[in-house]
Write a protein that binds this DNA or RNA. Structure first.
Lengths: 129, 129
DNA sequence: GGATACAGGTCTCAATTAGAGACCTTTTGT
DNA sequence: ACAAAAGGTCTCTAATTGAGACCTGTATCC
C-alpha cells in the first residue's frame, strides 16, 4: 500500500515495533502454511512415520512434508524421534502444545462443515451460473 | 509424494473423488490465504472502505487487498457496496456468515496468545542459541 | 485554469515460494 | 544380482506475491 500508510509502517519500524512479533500474525501464518494443520490433524490419530504421513496426505510433496515437519518441530508442536532400526525409522508425534492446538483447529473445521453449503451457494451466485 | 501414494490418489480421482471438495481443505486454504483472516478481523470493527483497510493493514499490497476482498466477497463472507459519492466510495462489511467465522477465528487467536511464549522458547532451543 | 489530491482499482515486472521428480544411502527380501 | 523401502535432499520449473507505476473522474488550492 505504499501510500501514507507505508510511511506510518516505517515510522513504527523505526521505533522498534516488530510486525513479525505479533502473535496473531505468527499463528495465522502458521495455519496459513497450508499443510501444517493437515499434518497436525493426521498426527491426532497417533504417532506416524514420515512416509505414512506422505501416504495420508497424498498431494503433498516430500519437499513440503519435510519442510512443514521441520517448522512444526521448531515451534514445539511436533516431536521427531529417530529409531535405530534397519532401515532407521523416524516417528513424528504431537507434543502437548501441538495437541492443544487441535481444540481451536476443530472449532474452525466445525465452522467449515456448517458453512460449506452456504459458501458453495454464494460462489454459484457470484460466478453467475 | 509420487510413490505408491500417488497411484492411489489417481485411482481416487479416476473414481470421481474431488480433493478440492473437502470442506476442511477449503476452509484451511481460506485461512491460509494469509490476508483474509486479517481483513475479517479488521471488518469486525465495522464497515470500512478500501483505502481504510489498506491503512489498517499497512503491509498488504493493493493487489492482494483487491484479490483477497474479491475472494471473501465471492464466498459470501464480505459484502461490497459502492456509494455514488464524488469520488465514488466502496464500503466493505461482514455478512452474517463472515461474522460467524470470527468465533472460531478468535479461538485460534486466543490459543496463539497463550502459546506464543512457549513457541518462542521452543524456537530458541531448536535454533540452539 | 492548471496543478494536485484522493478514491478505488488495474497492470507489469521482479522476487519468492511451492511442486515434480530424480537421486542418495543403507538394508532386507527373492 | 536386482528391486524395494525408509527418510530425505537437490534441482528445475511453475505458480503466487509484492512493489509500484498508471488510470479515471471529481474537488480543491492558488
Amino acid at each position: 500500500m505504499r501510500d501514507a500508510a507505508q510511511t506510518r509502517l516505517e515510522a513504527w519500524k523505526a521505533q522498534g515495533f516488530d510486525f513479525q512479533a505479533c502473535p496473531v500474525r505468527q499463528v495465522l501464518d502458521h495455519v496459513a502454511a497450508k499443510w501444517t494443520s493437515l499434518i497436525l490433524l493426521e498426527l491426532e490419530n497417533g504417532p506416524q512415520r514420515f512416509n505414512a504421513l506422505g501416504r495420508a496426505l497424498p498431494d503433498i510433496s516430500k519437499r513440503m512434508l519435510t519442510q512443514s515437519l521441520r517448522d512444526l518441530e521448531r515451534d514445539g508442536l511436533v516431536r521427531r524421534e529417530v529409531f535405530d532400526t534397519k532401515p532407521p525409522s523416524v516417528s513424528y508425534s504431537l507434543t502437548d502444545l501441538g495437541a492443544s492446538f487441535l481444540t481451536p483447529l476443530h472449532g474452525l473445521i466445525d465452522w467449515a462443515s456448517e458453512a460449506m453449503p452456504v459458501i458453495s451457494e454464494a460462489r454459484l451466485v457470484f460466478d453467475d451460473n
